[in-house]
């Protein structure tokens, strides 16, 4: 394919969680928690997963929804302020085609005993291989998974 294109877009997801910023942050930083709501969110078989949560650290995943198509996610953590914010850059590939590169900001703001989370994704969607609306929906689903994770961990605590 020679017809290259880039669609730049920004979307914001806002969600209130019945948990402190520290508990919400832990759901991102703790490998076991992250595995439950993020890595296994879609119940896709995982071929490979690595997670190094620190500035400059990487998170990589290789998944296959159907056993043939491979989906890759490569993340680098750019900024981490504990209990407050995380900024990471990530690219997605399907097979050998890169479909997007994005900058993502997660901000956690205390609201009484709760936390208001703002997820801002600034994306470059490549060669018509992904749609902004699809990405936003995928992210909204993930942040619902996070709500379930926080309910589960509250029930255990």
């Amino acid at each position: 394919m020679t017809d290259r294109s880039v669609t730049h877009a920004t979307f914001v997801i806002e969600r209130v969680y019945d948990a402190s910023p520290a508990r919400v942050f832990k759901a991102f930083s703790d490998p076991a928690a992250r595995n439950r709501w993020f890595v296994k969110a879609d119940n896709w078989p995982i071929a490979e997963y690595t997670f190094d949560f620190r500035v400059g650290g990487r998170e990589t995943g290789r998944f296959s929804p159907d056993g043939t198509m491979m989906v890759y996610n490569e993340t680098i953590y750019q900024d981490i302020v504990p209990d407050n914010r995380m900024i990471f850059a990530y690219s997605m590939m399907i097979g050998d085609k890169r479909i997007s590169s994005s900058l993502a900001t997660v901000e956690l703001k205390p609201e009484g005993t709760k936390t208001r989370l703002f997820y801002t994704e600034q994306g470059a969607f490549l060669d018509g291989l992904d749609k902004v609306a699809d990405r936003e929906k995928g992210c909204r689903d993930l942040y619902e998974q996070l709500a379930l994770e926080l309910e589960r961990s509250a029930a255990i605590a």
């Binding site: 290259r4 850059a89 690219s91 890169r98 590169s101 470059a124």
Partner: peptide, 15 residues
């Protein structure tokens, strides 16, 4: 910085 995508003579993306 870190290179996210490179298409020679067409495109460069970096964070």
């Amino acid at each position: 910085g870190q290179y996210q995508d490179i298409v020679p003579n067409e495109r460069i993306i970096y964070s």
